[in-house]
Amino acid sequence: MTPPDAPDNRWSDLDRPPLNAPALRRALVRPGSLWTSLEVVRETGSTNSDLAARAAGPDAPGEGAVLVAEAQHAARGRLDRRWTAPPRSGLFVSVYLVPGPGVPQERWGWVPLLAGVAVATGLSRAAGVDTALKWPNDLLVTVAGEERKAGGILAERAGEGIVLGIGLNVSLRAGELPVPTAGSLALAGAVTTDRDPLLRALLRSLEQWYGDWRAAGGDPVASGVQETYAAGCATLGRRVRALLPGEREVTGQAVALDGDGRLVIASDDGGRQPVGAGDIVHLRPAQAG
């Protein structure tokens, strides 16, 4: 018999039951779907690292492989920043996508922004929570009138495609937050913190947005990705300070996203500076000039 306090015991935390992998596979892995396999593991270091290693190996998965962990002990964000959360308190998922050959590689940089749109629209329907996007890869919710980070997105080249990772705080309580500025769906008043329907909604939304984008040859305008991202981006219209490598920085108002997904900053010196996600170290609010 499984001990009642074992991490994989269904009754060890009644508020945080484990994901139902067979039911998720029945719902998502079906003929004609983008998703071709779905695996749930009890714990790992990083789902992105695991899936990237598989993609680079001799037994690389096909497009649409999904790897989900109930807990991660070495989760990574952009620039190897660490992400921690209690077991079964969130969604920690990575998927393998192969946009080519129909999408030019210069447009692959839209994948993490597309994922942000998919997560925001999927959660709006499934959790009843408005999710804003902080460029380039943060998911924000409102808790007690404040914008707080509840998740993040990490895209990495691997094998012939991209490993896309999504981390989302679902049921974290105030005392469990890694930093005071973090948030979760529960703290934002979500109508449900049941991770099974949330994961289904997230992956179905991602399948739709990715499919439309790929059908448009990766064109962010024709697919609607650029317009929808801009509409939900909390960064646009605000004064920001972009910290760049070599201790350089650009301060000004974030005014647009360009066709490559870069943030365009109307700098204080009167110019317009596009900044790519791969070029930036930090993006911080700036005081009004």
Rank of each mutant, 00 (worst) to 15 (best):
R16A: 08
S46I: 10
E43S: 09
W11L: 09
P17C: 01
S46Y: 08
A23H: 05
V40K: 02
S37D: 15
S12I: 00
L14G: 06
R25S: 09
S37T: 15
P31F: 00
P31R: 00
T47D: 07
R26G: 06
S46W: 08
W11A: 09
S33A: 15
R25K: 09
R25E: 14
T47W: 10
S33L: 03
S46Q: 01
T44M: 09
T36A: 06
S37F: 12
S37R: 07
L24T: 06
W11N: 07
R42C: 02
P31W: 00
L14W: 11
W11C: 03
P18E: 01
D15H: 14
D15T: 14
P17K: 00
L34G: 07
V41W: 14
A21G: 14
E43Q: 14
R26Y: 09
L19A: 05
S37W: 10
S33G: 11
L34W: 15
V40N: 03
V29Y: 13
R30S: 11
A21C: 07
L34V: 10
V41G: 02
R16E: 07
S46P: 14
S46H: 05
R42F: 09
S37V: 05
A23F: 05
R16N: 13
D13N: 12
G32F: 10
D15R: 10
W35Y: 13
D15S: 14
A21P: 10
L38E: 08
S33Y: 13
S37M: 03
G45A: 02
P31D: 00
L34M: 12
A21F: 12
E39Q: 14
R26M: 06
W35M: 02
E39F: 06
T36E: 04
R26L: 09
A23M: 02
S12F: 05
S33V: 04
T36H: 07
E43T: 13
S33P: 15
L38R: 02
R42S: 11
V41L: 11
A23D: 12
L38N: 03
S37E: 14
R42D: 13
R30P: 15
L34H: 11
G45Y: 07
R26P: 03
R25F: 11
A27G: 08
E39A: 08
E39S: 09
V41T: 13
T47E: 04
L24E: 10
L19Y: 14
L38H: 10
D15M: 08
V41M: 07
P18I: 01
L24P: 13
P31N: 00
V29I: 07
L19T: 12
E39P: 05
S12D: 14
R16Q: 05
R30N: 10
N20K: 06
L19V: 11
A27R: 13
P22L: 01
R16T: 10
N20Q: 13
